[in-house]
Design a protein around this nucleic acid. Structure first.
Lengths: 319, 319
DNA sequence: TTAAGTTATGAAACGCGTTTCAGAGCAAGG
DNA sequence: CCTTGCTCTGAAACGCGTTTCATAACTTAA
């Protein structure tokens, strides 16, 4: 393996000149330029990018933290990040965490150790202050509604989005409304819960714990919830559901059980994945791709910004 | 930012000793160990991983090439890779290519420049010899049925798997069978095509070009194909379909059009995604997660191995 | 003609952790 | 008492590209 100094010797110039030529800097005479390229050719020179990273103090790599790679919500976000990163000469390092704090720290440590220039949390388990602690090492961005002066955020207003979902149902006369969520802990989930409680209060309905279905993230979870729903003595007539995947599971299981949607059970999903279109699920479209793209832009910048993106209702046939 | 030499000064030892302490090597007296850790604490030392990478000549990062991040086939593969990489202290760099050759080269260049220790091609567009060219820079693995002495491969036998799909249909009396594929060019696709032709020949049926539906990868493509199918004068009675996603699109569109499955059109999918279970699609289960895991193992090893994994038919209600 | 640029080039310092090798000190085996 | 071998430590070399600074040569404006 030859290095830049070998090239310099063969081309009869200094390493500085070699570096200049390789990086297309000005102020190098044409003949030397040529000599350098010939030497590169002759010695089959391969740059060692790790030396560049060490020298420059940056890597043009962004770390992406996501709990589950194989889930359309996160896949779509990741795609948005990747599409934005591509044209910008950035690479992505993905860290699948399963919501384990250690894995999240591992991702943050990549920032601390200068392996990545920034970190994007598509979702998280670790407390907020942990992200802040690592802020000194570089940009950290989160995909949730927080206005922190150190950490950039990109989000949709989950309170309003959930409210919209509730309103659609209420306009159709529903008063007995439940909801599905992946985990209660998440900050986006909490916003949804607040909206849930507030909306119920407006119509004078109590919050019934049995109507809140946790651990709903995948299609199978939807099927499970439907089963639970059938066993409820006092069951809700409508559900606002984590995402389209869970909504699909719910809908398909309902079909199997001969439960008509929306007559006996109305469903509102989130995301507007292709699946929702195919199954004609009424849903709230979230600009996941754009959230990803903006998250990337934030991650490569040292400025702290906060941005909310719009969502909108897609009316189909489950309400 | 302090470095290892600063630590050495403060702790009154050599950099060698500091390095030994930080890496938990033996042969360091307890008092020096302590002095080093105290200095680390005092100076708030942060290792620069790029220096480590440069020095060691490896990064414990594997590059993963995939055409589309946001597709359950590739997501599931990636998940398998990630799960295997996790316990092994490896990180993953993902490159989304959209099947563009340049992007694939970019991924291979990361290997050449020592940014990654190995590269996994979950699918590719570039010709095979290109991968071989880069083999000198490190392990390259492909997820397709090729027995090359330089490049490791992990795959399922797509010829046999497709054959199985055809047989299931033929056993039910189908003779007019078509198929869907993402792109004809891929080597896995070609195996399927061979199987298709061979099986048709066995029953004396011709290969009808109109019964081969290309560019089928997503759910929407399934809906499109169903529409095309309805317009065919002489239409097949059964389709072997790219994957469960396309099969779902097909099935749901059929339902909308009032076309009964499997009576008027039988469908066999591939993968066995949760969606296939939910929609009761007969499919051929591919061990995608395990393919990913094995691909990772191959990518971190310099030995060239070839491995085929088993598949199996999951009979449900679309045949 | 002189001061002020502009072009061109290289020495040396910088970023930083790992590893080899040489050597010192000490204990166990013969 | 001597040899062998293990414990412990540090100097120096290694991996390698970038960048600053000094300098030289040549223009151009005044």
């Amino acid at each position: 393996m030859s290095n830049i100094r070998d090239i310099a010797k063969v081309a009869n110039v200094s390493v500085t000149t070699v570096s200049r030529v390789l990086n297309n800097h000005p102020y190098v005479k044409e003949d030397k330029r040529k000599a350098v390229w010939e030497a590169v050719e002759q010695l089959d020179y391969q740059q060692n990018i790790n030396a560049v990273h060490l020298s420059k103090g940056k890597t043009s790599v962004i770390g992406v933290v996501l709990p589950y790679i194989n889930h359309p919500y996160f896949s779509r976000l990741l795609e948005g990040i990747a599409d934005a990163a591509e044209g910008d000469g950035y690479k992505l390092m993905v860290i699948q965490t399963n919501y384990e704090a250690e894995k999240e720290i591992e991702a943050l440590d990549m920032l601390r150790l200068k392996q990545v220039d920034g970190v994007i949390f598509t979702s998280r388990n670790s407390p907020w202050y942990v992200l802040k602690e690592y802020r000194t090492y570089g940009p950290v961005v989160a995909c949730e509604n927080k206005l922190d002066e150190e950490i950039s955020t990109i989000f949709i207003d989950h309170y309003q989005a959930f409210q919209l979902g509730m309103n659609v149902l209420m306009e159709k006369g529903h008063r007995k409304i439940g909801y599905c969520i992946s985990r209660r802990k998440g900050s986006n989930s909490q916003k949804r819960h607040e909206a849930y409680c507030d909306q119920l209060e407006k119509i004078g309905e109590p919050v019934r714990d049995k109507w809140i279905f946790e651990k709903c993230l995948h299609m199978e979870d939807g099927a499970r919830v439907l089963q639970e729903w059938t066993k409820l003595e006092d069951a809700p007539t409508a559900l606002v559901v984590t995402n389209d995947l869970v909504a699909s599971g719910l809908l398909l299981e309902a079909e199997k059980m001969g439960i008509t949607v929306p007559e006996r059970l109305a469903i509102v999903g989130f995301d507007d994945q292709p699946l929702a279109e195919a199954l004609q699920i009424t849903t709230i479209r979230l600009p996941l791709h754009e959230i990803g793209a903006e998250a990337f832009r934030q991650a490569k910048s040292d400025q702290v910004v906060h941005k909310a993106l719009p969502f909108r209702l897609i009316e189909r046939k489950t309400v």
